[in-house]
Design a protein around this nucleic acid. Structure first.
Lengths: 155, 155
DNA sequence: GCGTTGTCTTGAATGAGTCAAATGACGACG
DNA sequence: CGTCGTCATTTGACTCATTCAAGACAACGC
């Protein structure tokens, strides 16, 4: 990686501050994290950072195009640094783990609805729901142990 | 419509109660509504219904497969009665209006990620973000009236 | 170094949604 | 048709993520 975070912050018209560098550092290590986890991790390198500062920093980063906010249903918002490449996400129904999926098309909107009902679409957000590798193993163990089929997933 | 709501409730193993019929009635008239709006509208036919009862009813309906819950980013959850036909949604960035889009494929998951990273995918949730017809007109008016380009939508 | 302006801290508030105990209604069974 | 067990609703308090507001502070241009 050539361009530093400082450069990118400045390029986005944002000031370079310790809280922002801390948050960027955390995001660089953990691809998909929620605000609370970021606050905890950032406190390791900058102890006096407050939860609200994290929210402020994240809003600034998202506004400046340095970060992206994703909100999987039923979970707190997650933040990631991969922006500009219109990619999608795999979410585990069990543990909530998120993985990136490259978009075949590349440019947004990668999909076009058959009938747009007068809408002008600029982005197609795709979320793949399923079970991650770990949770599949876990699930299989339980099925073997006892009959627990409270699922009934239909089409 | 042949089968009544009573039949469907019973078929799902749920009791037939006035709050449930009220909520179903509201959902039948309004395709995409949040819990609070449902509570207000349902109160018109059943004044003593409480907000918590609405949550309980909705959870029962979703659990019984009679309703579906969708959670657009940055907005309270919406509920709809169209279930079973894997369709998707158009959401307006400005006013939050939601429209249905039929899925070309029909069966879930209608899409398959290129590399599933060990996930077993059972559903692909697609949300098309854009501007509805009304908000396009509104936006155009503002652009003509004054220079307000606080947007910067990229890619 | 100095001032301006944007950013962080501190503290409190909002709003969606949930949990728990007690009353009440549905519907099966007699 | 009446009784009873079970599920549903009511009432009330509570959690959690996120936001708002006012003052202290630090970054950047000069």
């Amino acid at each position: 990686m050539e361009t530093t975070w400082e450069d990118r912050l400045r390029a986005a018209g944002l000031r370079v501050t310790r809280p922002r560098l801390s948050v960027l550092g955390v995001l660089a290590e953990h691809p998909h994290v929620d605000a609370d986890t970021i606050a905890t991790a950032a406190r390791a390198v900058h102890p006096s950072i407050s939860p609200q500062a994290v929210y402020g920093v994240l809003k600034a980063l998202v506004g400046g195009g340095l970060a992206r906010r994703i909100e999987p249903a039923g979970a707190p918002a997650l933040y990631e640094l991969r922006v500009g490449d219109n990619h999608h996400h795999l979410v585990c129904r069990e543990c909530g783990v998120v993985a990136d999926v490259d978009c075949a098309v590349g440019a947004a909107p990668c999909l076009t609805p058959s009938e747009a009902a007068g809408f002008v679409v600029d982005e197609a957000e795709v979320v793949f729901w399923g079970l991650c590798a770990d949770c599949q193993v876990e699930r299989r163990k339980h099925v073997l142990g006892s009959v627990e089929s409270t699922e009934g997933v239909e089409a």
